[in-house]
Amino acid sequence: MRIGVTVFPGSNCDRDALHAVELMGAEPVELWHADADLKGSDAVIVPGGFSYGDYLRPGAIARFARVMGPLEDFARDGGPVLGVCNGFQVLCEAHLLPGALLQNTHMRFACDRVRVRVETKETPWTSGCENGEELTLPIAHNEGNYFADPETLARLEDEGRVVLRYLENPNGSANDIAGVCNEGRNVVGVMPHPERVSDPALGSDEGLKILRSVLAEATV
């Protein structure tokens, strides 16, 4: 399975994500922001960082990068896409996911390890977890405060599209939301960083439970 990782100017988790893909046993494919196609990727990770310096709003400029055209087509055709941290922000700005990530309510950068609960295994990125399973994942963000209007929030909850939920809310996020998916369930955005806990050498490989889930898609 080929898993693409997008690289924008200012991405800083792309190497970690590529390394995690290798540890998963898949083939990592670097996707430069100016690339015109996804180089045959079967799944794509939009990694964390500060794409385009977070100028204007986090993710606002990255969503117009050239590689986002084919990525949006891929996502709309049902291809598995995972946005992590800044990647989540990019996917929201691109309207591939609902809502927006606002500044943390406490006005501080949140850098920690947090407990999250997997709320649904019905996505390509959580199918290897159990519903209700708790994971410890790192967070590192200034704009992780998930916001959506009340109707959208109610819909996300009704349709089981909250993917990860914080056990203790670190940023003011609505309904303690740490991750959501789109209507087709193939596009997932999460604030915590599974790729940063993908190797026992990093202290934990719990993040692989999320990342490895997508391997099941290879046989579909």
Binding site: L102, Q103, N104, T105, H106, M107, N145, F147, G172
Partner: peptide, 10 residues
Amino acid sequence: GILDPQGEAV
């Protein structure tokens, strides 16, 4: 109605 942490801090 949208929370404005910057405004609140000021």
